[in-house]
Design a protein around this nucleic acid. Structure first.
Length: 821
RNA sequence: GCGGAUGUGGCGGAAUUGGUAUACGCGCAGGUCUCAGAAGCCUGUGCCCGCAAGGGCUUGAGAGUUCGAGUCUCUCCAUCCGCACCA
């Protein structure tokens, strides 16, 4: 019988579905194992080949854990709110609800065709009112706890479309759709105070098993730094300018102050600037530059002098106060003290505007001459000089000494700052969860600016249908145009009130979906305490490296908040987090619809089969790294499965034979290969080294093909090892070997180290580290015998002729190296 | 610019974590089968010199540590991901 993937795959997918084989059981006595993949955004483009990369890997893990006796939970759902669907709906004049339903149907069909062992009975959808009811409810808990607040934040405003744009819709500083100019406009936005959790988000990383690079990115994103806020009096006024620095040790070398155009200092004191007109012009000019450009080292420095001077109490020096856009308004206090000798951007600024440069640190190169060239700027290490009581100290000791001094004098206060900023939670868009607040016209809740929470029993606030999905040209969401909906009554006093028309960002629904899976049909709570206690935390979460900062941090924060409210059982939601690399197009560039280099999973599954696609995805390269797609590689995998099929047909025809008895050490060669493979495949799956696990399976298949006789037991074990990767083919082969139950109900094979041992190994013989021969010997051959055998090799002897042996390095089973002179 | 990562044959990659570099797969070449082709099977395949035996070189570039470096250290270069309203 030839390998007919179409018949086999359909048959087993139906069988698994009918028997509910992979549905998680709430009342199982087995130990739970919660496997999670990032739920997909159901875009109109259909499943991207990158989705099954992650899904297959965790499917392999889920299957192996099942076979190891765990109660595995592997759910799936849809992260369906968001811009692309909304924009598509605007363009095609269709309802986002309908578009979303269609996209989900497509994704579902595509995922099912790949045979993933998802628990489809627990599917969730963020756009379902029964789901977002709880997203809204949880937002209200943030609101009630005082963590949600309104603040003015800049948005990208397209002057011709008259709507605010997402950063992604701004291309080269212009509107993506109309190409028109963009302006930054301040808009009142809901914010969530994630920075209150910064310390715990940082320190609790010690309690979880994330890939080191993931932890590092989280740490850097949170960006804790200890420093000091220093207040300098402004000459001739009663105002002060407050700056933040992590390097007060260099303060004897401070020669200017730079404040950000968008800083509090400029907003509050611009009236007092002697050069006010010039500063106003500069502020307007720089308003639309992005932070990324502004912070860049080497970028041409610009600025405007305010006409004011601050006094450095340490030295009595007059420091001119400049407005300069290389200072960022949202970092520290929005103002910095310029030490051009020891900071490259300060140096660039000072040289551009003729400001003094002083040396206060001698670098490791010992150069103590005046700093005139950029390469002399000493930023990282060194010893203090020209700095009074700090002279001779190392910069780190000097930093502490200076902070002590400044605190004692009352000039400054030690401060911890974070790069992390509070979470902008409002969108002026249609396709998101309505924010469940009303503004009372009668003055309720003055402490919250008049904002009142919707009563729990009135949730969800259902997204009403509108005529047009475009944001209004006043910058409000399209919901603002539905006067009937906006006008409501205050849940508190019953007086007139207006609804909040902003919606939530798509991060909201994805910040807690893993909790909903535990109890997806509950209408009394987002999930019951019992269900959460049973399944949380997630044991293994895999997702893209591109989600390492935002989604991962938001959802950790969200979970921690719920934990503090006593609503979830663990402080950290994910015990383990790994990441997969992007799949690139064959030419090594990113796949994109516009370039037409997108790989279509449907046609691949139809032509080669789901098992081939799954195996190829695991084999194509190291799981954590980006790899270009290669259809030729798929062909190679298909050949492998056909080879397996041929071997299996042969085994079925041959008379049943007992398993090859281990003859002496290691048994026969096939038994040895089998046990090596069991070990390697098991270890590799756990370590997510899927590519080498598959190549080990290939080697075992090659060995079976070459072997004169393959026992049914050997083949059966091979099938078990193959099963997580190629579940359909494995079920078919397993059944062909006479089993009546699913291969996934069998126990994962154990390897016997005795059977895996080699009788003889090849040992390298080196002379002065160069390979001069090899010998086949027992792995534990004693030193003297190894030396004598090696010296007997003709080519080795040739290279040793006339030399004296200074040293012999012998690594049993690996190599022997003669160091000669 | 800042933060995180990566760099090995013609291509995707492997390397027991300091021990025979190039496993496995693709591609290519030769053979077998065939009227012929396809598929399958067998053999070979890092580069240079050599009929061969063998020798030299080789893991982005350059230096260093070591009996021994793809792996450790330093300098440089290139590529990818993220940068807060894409998901």
């Amino acid at each position: 019988m030839p390998y007919d993937h179409q018949a086999i795959e359909k048959k087993w997918q139906n069988h698994w579905e009918e028997t509910g084989l992979f549905y998680a059981k709430n009342d199982s006595p087995k130990e739970k194992f919660y496997c999670l993949i990032e739920f997909p955004y159901p875009s109109g483009a259909g499943l991207h080949i990158g989705h099954p990369r992650s899904n297959t890997a965790l499917d392999v893990i889920a299957h192996k854990k099942r076979m190891e006796g765990k109660n595995v939970f592997y759910p799936i759902g849809w992260d369906a709110f968001g811009l692309p669907t909304e924009n598509y709906a605007i363009k095609t004049k269709r309802k986002p609800q309908d578009v979303t339903a269609e996209n989900i149907a497509t994704f579902k069909r595509q995922l099912k065709a790949l045979g993933f062992s998802f628990d489809w009975s627990r599917e969730v959808n963020t756009t379902d009112p029964a789901y977002y009811k709880w997203t809204q409810w949880q937002f209200l808990q943030f609101f009630k706890a005082g963590l949600a607040y309104k603040a003015k934040m800049p948005v990208n405003w397209c002057l011709s479309c008259k709507i605010s744009l997402a950063n992604e819709e701004v291309v080269n500083g212009r509107c993506e759709r109309c190409g028109g100019a963009i302006e930054k406009r301040d808009k009142e936005q809901w914010m969530i105070a994630i920075t209150k959790y910064a310390d715990r988000l940082l320190s609790d990383l010690d309690t979880v098993d994330y890939l080191p690079k993931i932890k590092k990115q989280q740490q850097e994103w949170i960006g804790r730094s200890e420093g000091i806020n220093i207040r300098y009096p402004v000459e001739g006024t009663d105002i002060e300018v407050e700056i933040f620095t992590t390097r007060p040790d260099t303060n004897f070398g401070a020669t200017f102050i730079a404040v950000a155009p968008d800083s509090k200092f400029v907003r509050e004191h611009i009236e007092a600037f002697p050069e006010r007109v010039e500063v106003e012009r500069y502020v307007r000019e720089t308003a639309d530059t992005s932070d990324i450009d502004r912070g860049a080292e080497g970028r041409k420095k610009t600025g405007a002098f305010t006409g004011l001077y601050a006094t450095n109490p340490l030295t009595g020096r007059r420091m001119p106060i400049w407005v300069a856009d290389f200072t960022l308004g949202n970092v520290g206090t929005g103002a910095l003290v310029g030490v051009p000798g020891h900071d490259m951007r300060d140096f660039e600024f000072a040289t551009a505007f003729g400001i003094d440069v002083m040396r206060v640190v001698i670098g490791l190169d010992g150069d103590a001459s005046p700093i005139t060239r950029p390469e002399q700027v000493q930023e990282e290490a060194g010893t203090m000089i020209n700095s009074g009581f700090l002279d001779g100290m190392d910069i780190h000791a000097a930093t502490q000494a200076m902070m002590d001094h400044m605190e004692k004098e009352g000039w400054g206060t030690r401060t911890v700052t974070y790069k992390l900023r509070d979470w902008v939670f409002s969108r002026q868009r249609y396709w998101g969860e309505p924010i469940p607040l009303v503004h009372c016209e009668d003055g309720c809740s003055p402490e919250n600016g008049g904002w009142v929470a919707i009563r729990d029993e009135d949730l969800p606030v259902v997204l009403p249908e509108v005529e047009h999905y475009e944001p209004t040209d006043s910058g409000e969401s399209p919901l603002a145009a539905i006067e009937d909906w906006v006008k409501t009554t205050c849940p508190f006093c019953g007086g007139p009130a207006r609804r909040e028309t902003d919606t939530m960002p798509n991060w909201a629904g994805s910040s807690w979906y893993f909790l909903r899976y535990a109890d997806p049909h509950n209408d009394q709570a987002f999930a019951s305490k019992e269900a959460l206690a049973q399944w949380m935390p997630v044991d293994w979460y895999n997702g893209g490296m591109e989600h390492t900062t935002l989604h991962l941090l938001y959802s950790r924060f969200w979970n921690k908040f719920l934990y503090d409210q006593g609503l979830v059982p663990t402080s950290e939601p994910y015990a383990k987090r790994t990441s997969h690399g992007l799949i690139l197009a064959e030419d090594g560039t990113k796949m994109s619809k516009s370039k037409g280099n997108v790989v279509n999973p449907d046609s691949l599954v139809a032509e080669y089969g789901a098992d081939t696609v799954r195996l190829y995805l695991m084999f194509m390269g190291p799981f954590g790294e980006p790899v270009p797609w290669n259809t030729n590689g798929v062909v190679g995998i298909r050949r492998f499965l056909e080879k397996v099929w041929t071997v299996a047909e042969r085994v079925k025809i041959e008379a049943s034979t007992p398993p090859s008895p281990p003859s002496g050490r290691g048994g026969d060669s096939l038994t040895r290969q089998l046990h090596k493979a069991i070990k390697k495949v098991s270890d590799d799956i756990d370590a997510l080294k899927m590519n080498t696990a598959v190549s080990q399976l290939m080697m075992l298949a090659n060995a079976m093909q070459e072997a004169s006789l393959v026992s049914r037991e050997t083949l059966a074990t091979f099938v078990q090892l193959l099963a997580p990767f190629a579940p359909h083919a494995a079920e078919e082969l397993w059944q062909g070997l006479g089993h009546t139950e699913s291969v996934f109900l069998s126990s994962w094979p154990m390897h016997n180290p005795e059977f895996a041992k080699d009788e003889v190994v090849e040992v390298a013989i080196q002379v002065n580290g160069k390979l001069r021969g090899t010998m086949r010997v027992m792995p534990d051959l004693p030193h003297d015998q190894a030396r004598d055998l090696a010296l007997a090799e003709e080519n080795v002897a040739k290279h040793m002729e006339g030399k004296t042996v200074a040293k012999v390095v012998y690594v049993p089973g690996r190599l022997i190296n003669f160091v000669v002179r």
